[in-house]
Nucleic acid binder design. Sequence first.
DNA 1: ATAGGCCCATGACAGATGTCACCCGTGCGA
DNA 2: TCGCACGGGTGACATCTGTCATGGGCCTAT
Lengths: 200, 200
Amino acid sequence: MIRVLLADDEAMIRSALAALLRLEDDIEIVAECADGEEAVAEAIRLQPDVCLLDLEMPGLDGVEVAARLRRALPTRCVVVTRHARPGVLRRALASGVAGFLPKSRDAEEVAEVIRRVAAGGRYVDPEVAADALSDERCPLTGRELDVLRAGRRGETTAQIARALSLAPGTVRNHVSAVLGKLGLESRQQAVILAEERGWI
Amino acid sequence: MIRVLLADDEAMIRSALAALLRLEDDIEIVAECADGEEAVAEAIRLQPDVCLLDLEMPGLDGVEVAARLRRALPTRCVVVTRHARPGVLRRALASGVAGFLPKSRDAEEVAEVIRRVAAGGRYVDPEVAADALSDERCPLTGRELDVLRAGRRGETTAQIARALSLAPGTVRNHVSAVLGKLGLESRQQAVILAEERGWI
DNA sequence: ATAGGCCCATGACAGATGTCACCCGTGCGA
DNA sequence: TCGCACGGGTGACATCTGTCATGGGCCTAT
């Protein structure tokens, strides 16, 4: 029996997946969690064989949960995501995730991936993997990414500067570098692009 | 037997819901569609009793599909959405949608809502309905919303002005009015808020 | 009719944003 | 050791963005 923990902030997909997986003879759902913190706590308490984690969750996201669990448990993690970008996959693999599956795949495949991962294997969606190989690495530096992250919600440069303890001019300079590298015209466009590519 | 058409661009949730609904004795899934255009075409061809439509789909969204079907068929529509904002509910009800359910509800409730709607009833998620009653209408004018829509992806004011055939100054003026009404500091913040509230 | 209320449009002004040239410290190869 | 490429930081400058005062068109109530 493979003991599985399920975490997704959207109740509809969480409960639907749970119901489907319960139909499988060799899989047992031991917990259903609505956010990352809960998933970490329950995983430590219940020691499941596999954790199926949504990437987009409030607070701790799926990759962060996997990173924390790796340091504490032998549990193997599968991350499921709506936007399967190469950058996200890289981040996931670096955090020790054993399986990576976009939500554009059928629910039927989930059970199969869980079995493979429980058996010690790895599974990465072939389509995403191909993308990740063809597309090059993020061209932005750490500080540049910090600036974009701090400006995610349309914050003003002054607010970003305060948040990072920088002079406003420095923030503007980083932004300028980003726009030059990406060929864009405004900080907001850069934020949107970076989010789409999974860089932030 | 209730004949149901299912439309959601995310294969995982679409197939999971389909599998769950197939377990119900009185429900038959007659079509699974991945976008709005396909949903309209299949609904006209198959004449299902109920259409279960995701709101967020590329091309035609769930409410637009419902609006088109209302003019062509006696089918009753249920709209399911990730972000259940009062503005969206209003838009949905105005388009003749018979059921409205956020994805934060359990998948088990979907079958129940389908039955109720097929029987001629209406169903609106109580929590969203309460929000819609308590919260006031969008304070922005049509042109102001146009400007926000045209600036959704971080476009520059010059680009927005060209897109709407306006002088740049006019665009800035609309933006200024929006920021005043909403108490914000940048156009991008306004775009984010308007998206969250379902105004655009 | 007309006065008042809107939504929309516009241009002049001030402040925020992005560009540029420059400096500092670090790590790497010649 | 030196040169130098690179990430990071900074302030002056030009451009873009948001503010404000203003005017026109269209409704509605008086």
